[in-house]
Structures are given as C-alpha cells and as structure tokens.
C-alpha cells in the first residue's frame, strides 16, 4: 500500500523526541519497541508502510525522579561536568535526558524541550533537555 503522505518525510521539521502509541491497545512506549509487550502488535520503524503507531512528542511538564552531576564524561564532551536526570511526564511516560538547571532537587517540576545535546563534526544530535 502506498502512503500518499510519504513526501512529508522530506520536510524540514523541528527536531522532536517521540513516544509511540500502540494502535491496538493504546499503550504508550518510550523508546519504541518493535512489538507491544501488552498486546503483541508489531511496529515498522520505517513508518512508510505502516504509520499507525501514533507519534507523541515528549515535551512539557515533568517531574524529576533522580539526577546526577557527572564529572567523568565519555569522550566527545569537553566540559568539566554535565547534569543528567530521569523524569516522569504527566502521562506517566518516563525518559532520561540532560538537565540544564544548576541546583536540581528530586521531585521538582521541570519543563522538557528538545535541543542539541551533542555535536559530532557538523552534525547536531538533538535530545531532551529538562529545565
């Protein structure tokens, strides 16, 4: 079956991070598995032939579950430290990402947005930033 909306793949889009909703049982997953663990419905990541798994942008209000300030970073980050956190969104979806506040506290309300988290050569890699 040809998806008439396929041309939209070439649009310049605002970078986003998505959770995926299973079309059968409506369970929301992040990151997306290849099969729903609740109802065993399969997913096609190319999103060309089957686009039924609804993409839900991860953004907005969330709660900080835990955080850390890391001084021993992997190769590729030439800064003294970075802050990381795990958050829970209002729809109960959880995600890990970067923190852009200096004094985090467990349980605090944060706002999630998508921005550059790493540069590899000219390529910018986007991801969740909580502030």
């Amino acid at each position: 079956m040809f998806d008439p909306d396929i041309y939209k793949l070439y649009e310049e889009k605002e970078e986003q991070v998505f959770a995926f909703r299973c079309p059968s049982c409506k369970k929301v997953h992040y990151p997306a598995p290849m099969i729903c663990d609740k109802c065993n419905t399969r997913r096609d990541p190319s999103n060309v032939y089957f686009s039924e798994w609804e993409k839900i942008p991860l953004q907005g209000e969330c709660t900080l579950l835990s955080w850390t300030k890391v001084y021993a970073l992997p190769e590729g980050y030439e800064v003294p430290y970075l802050l990381f956190g795990i958050v829970e969104f209002q729809n109960k979806i959880r995600a890990s990402g970067r923190l852009s506040i200096e004094r985090p506290e467990t349980g605090m309300k944060l706002n999630a947005r998508v921005d550059v988290v790493k540069k590899r050569g000219d390529k910018e890699i986007h991801g969740l930033i909580f502030s």
């Binding site: 992040y30 990151p31 579950l65 835990s66 955080w67 850390t68 300030k69 890391v70 021993a72 970073l73 992997p74 590729g76 980050y77 970075l82 990381f84 956190g85 795990i86 995600a95 890990s96 990402g97 970067r98 467990t106 988290v117 790493k118 890699i125 991801g127 969740l128």
Partner: peptide, 23 residues
C-alpha cells in the same frame, strides 16, 4: 546503553550509578 534514549545524551554507567545511589 540504549543508543537513542540514553547514550546520545552523554549518559554513562557512572551516571546511572549516581542516579541509582541518589534514589
């Protein structure tokens, strides 16, 4: 780590060790 949901952020095993310890 998960390439899309963890590794891309610069998360590492020590980072998870830290967050686990805090919890």
């Amino acid at each position: 780590l998960h390439p899309e949901a963890e590794y891309r952020y610069g998360l590492s095993l020590p980072a998870f060790g830290g967050m686990f310890t805090r919890m």
